[in-house]
Design a protein around this nucleic acid. Structure first.
Length: 319
DNA sequence: AAGGCGGTCAACCGCCGGGAT
DNA sequence: CATCCCGGCGGTTGACCGCCT
């Protein structure tokens, strides 16, 4: 059971907002600010739930919102950030001035994911669908392998980038002596738990597990370094595992970290209202330090990445 | 002209994290 | 430490609109 409703639903208006309601809310917020949304409806003379007021304001009435179409630059940024962060729309929206998380989410669901699919890219993993099908086919002829470790992210998806680039990114990080297990310091026990994958195997499910686990753990490590602003989804994945459910979804964003990060100090702690933006900035900074940003840029510019793209090295979304 | 259908997007719902008490 | 409350988030829904037949 979740929390009880935040307001008396019987006496609350639902559905589309009228211009009068918008005017009331705008007048109230312009004079009183936006604190304590639960009291806003009453004080503003609205028969609305406080959450509804907050949503209406943040998604529609807030100053400096853009209402025009997304630009190509914004599209590219969304795709890049989605590859890195998964469906963490608020973080992505923080990098797009004037856009809300709802805007970005809707645009992704209605436009961008379709474009990616048309290009032969799986919008969830950002991998070529052909690769995924190949992997599925290869898995289908293998005997099932139970998870080797109780805390493994057994259901994490495969790396989101091209395997070669993904593993290159991991190599880069490992060469920098990145600590890849955030939950426990590196130790012989941990090494025992995660033996290196045997070489010369074209595809092995446990290889994905090891890499994803490492990527998720490294992302969590980076998160710790960044000041714990956001609880990384690796934890959620572990929790989901412990609860008996698949942790792949919760861990997907961590795995989407592009090979894990544990960069140095990014200029102190991250906090306050700019925390999320600073978090993204820190990730991007880390990518620059490790060269992952270059990898992503190369991937996005690579026609082969967008399987249907025939010629242009740049992203051409025009249809 | 009208009904079906799909796309878009505003709004709602339920859950979670964190601060306050 | 436990509980309550609030803001925020992501997923989902449903109304609306335009296009097609």
């Amino acid at each position: 059971m979740g929390r009880p409703p935040c307001c008396d639903k019987a006496n609350v208006k639902k559905g589309p907002w009228t211009p009068e309601e918008d005017a009331k809310l705008l007048a109230f917020t312009s004079t009183h600010g936006t604190g304590n949304w639960t009291t806003v409806p009453q004080r503003a003379g609205l028969k609305r739930c406080g959450k509804s007021c907050r949503l209406r304001y943040t998604n529609y009435l807030r100053p400096n919102l853009k209402h025009e179409n997304f630009t190509q630059e914004e599209e590219e940024l969304i795709v890049t950030l989605h590859a890195m962060l998964g469906s963490r729309w608020s973080l992505i929206a923080n990098q797009l001035p004037g856009r809300t998380d709802n805007d970005v989410k809707n645009y992704w669901n209605t436009k961008l994911s379709k474009k990616l699919r048309q290009r032969g890219i799986d919008p969830i993993t950002h991998r070529p669908i052909a690769d995924l099908m190949h992997s599925i086919g290869a898995l289908a002829i293998r005997p099932a392998q139970p998870p080797q470790h109780p805390n493994t992210s057994a259901y994490l998806p495969a790396p989101l980038l091209h395997d070669a680039s993904y593993h290159h990114a991991v190599d880069v990080l490992q060469q920098q002596q990145v600590v890849i297990d955030a939950d426990a310091p590196a130790s012989p026990d941990n090494l025992d738990q995660k033996p290196p994958p045997p070489p010369q195997q074209l595809l092995k499910w446990s290889d994905f597990l090891a890499d994803d686990d490492a990527a998720a753990a490294a992302a969590a490590e980076a998160q710790q370094v960044l000041g714990g602003q956001q609880q990384y989804q690796h934890e959620a994945a572990v929790k989901a595992e412990a609860a008996g459910g698949p942790g792949w979804q919760a861990g997907s964003s961590a795995a989407a970290g592009g090979g894990g990060r544990a960069c140095g100090d990014n200029g102190g702690g991250v906090g306050g209202d700019d925390g999320a933006a600073a978090f993204i900035d820190a990730i991007l900074d880390c990518d620059k330090e490790t060269g992952v940003d270059q990898l992503i840029a190369e991937l996005l510019a690579d026609p082969a990445y967008y399987a249907g793209s025939s010629s242009s090295p740049e992203m051409d979304w025009g249809y």
